[in-house]
């Protein structure tokens, strides 16, 4: 009983120090090489000479990018740089009401197209090894897939991490996002964007036990400073959703969740068909075994609709957990070096 009280006191003292507010995420040195609207392309300063083609990381539009550079030693970006892979990252920024009318084609076609163009120019100026690869995480991967379907020659290889492809296998999210029950048009018509706080609350409701579980984990690691630091950084990131631009959200939910169009077909962006079968470059699909947002079948469905060879890897962990674990960067580096 004394130990329980001791742990309670340790947790209380930890929380008193405002660990969530003071967590410093996204600390790997970088320079913005291109801006468009709220989004930016971040070029990370190399820590060793480049030995592989540069990679463009497309992050999801629903959170900040820092989860892939959460803390030193817990950063996918840092590990890629250490392995000699030049890293560029698409940071979508914080869309505002003025972005509500932007269609999905603005992000998945025009903006990403410009990103690849500017990265290619910058990489040439740095004399990096020839070629360009891409990695998409979560919804960022879905946007990357749509972009590559429209521009199949854009990259040499593409990796998709916890990326929903078969949305009808997305577990509870697929159940909730049913055309008959989910008031998609009411949200976009009334609010313009899908607000960050609603998104945060829906993710919490997705697995209500997660709310208590995180406190229990903190309590169990009451005397583990490394865990506490990671816990605080993840809490900060988790609470930092961004607004999803309305019209893009409407098309995304309608085409992906309602129609499952990446698998079923019939989706056109800018009058061009979105067909993953058109993309012949090698792809990697990484799924997290305990992912309740994008379960492995939803991610690995890539193998059945992609035009080129697809390697599938399932890593132990949850949707966010894999991003801060050590297995994901090792998997990506091995694949990029193959």
């Amino acid at each position: 009983m004394l130990e329980v009280l001791h742990r309670n006191a340790a947790v209380a003292s930890f929380l008193k120090s405002d660990p969530i507010g003071s967590a410093r995420t996204g600390a790997t040195p970088n320079t913005v090489i291109h801006r468009q609207g709220k989004s930016a392309v971040r070029w990370f300063h190399p820590s060793v000479p480049a030995t592989a083609a540069p990679v463009v990381i497309v992050m999801p539009l629903i959170n900040t990018w820092t989860v892939w550079d959460l803390l030193p030693g817990r950063s996918v970006v840092e590990r890629l740089l250490e392995a000699g892979v030049p890293v560029y990252l698409v940071d979508w920024g914080r869309p505002g009401k003025e972005d509500a009318a932007r269609p999905l084609s603005d992000y998945a076609d025009v903006l990403l197209g410009r990103v690849f163009d500017r990265v290619r120019r910058h990489a040439a100026s740095q004399a990096y090894p020839q070629g360009l690869d891409a990695i998409g995480y979560c919804v960022g991967g879905t946007f990357l897939a749509v972009h590559l379907a429209l521009h199949p020659e854009q990259v040499g290889r593409a990796a998709f991490v916890c990326t929903p492809i078969d949305f009808h296998q997305s577990g509870r999210l697929a159940t909730w996002a049913s055309p008959s029950d989910f008031p998609l048009d009411a949200i976009v018509d009334n609010l313009g964007n899908y607000p960050a706080d609603m998104m945060r609350s829906s993710f919490r409701w997705l697995r209500p036990s997660g709310v208590t579980r995180k406190w229990v984990s903190l309590w169990e690691h009451a005397e583990d400073p490394a865990f506490q630091q990671l816990w605080a950084a993840l809490e900060q990131w988790n609470d930092d959703n961004v607004d999803f631009p309305g019209e893009t959200y409407r098309e995304y939910v309608r085409r992906c969740y309602f129609d499952n169009a990446l698998v079923a077909g019939g989706w056109q962006v800018g009058n061009r068909p979105v067909s993953l079968a058109n993309v012949k470059v090698p792809a990697l699909s990484v799924a997290a075994a305990q992912d309740h947002i994008v379960p492995p079948p939803a991610a690995h469905a890539l193998a059945s609709c992609w035009g080129g060879p697809v390697e599938t890897v399932t890593i132990n962990g949850g949707h966010v957990g894999v991003s801060v674990g050590r297995k994901l960067p090792a998997t990506l580096i091995a694949w990029l070096r193959a």
Binding site: R172, T175, W176, S178, D181, F182, P183, A186, I187, N190, L191, M198, W205, R207, P208, S209
Partner: peptide, 29 residues
Amino acid sequence: MTTWWDQVLESPAFLKSMGSGVTQQVQGR
């Protein structure tokens, strides 16, 4: 609790009330 939540959160009644609740919330905003 997880078992209970699984039953509640995927029930047609919950989906209906979630839909109408969200609609009312966005209209209020």
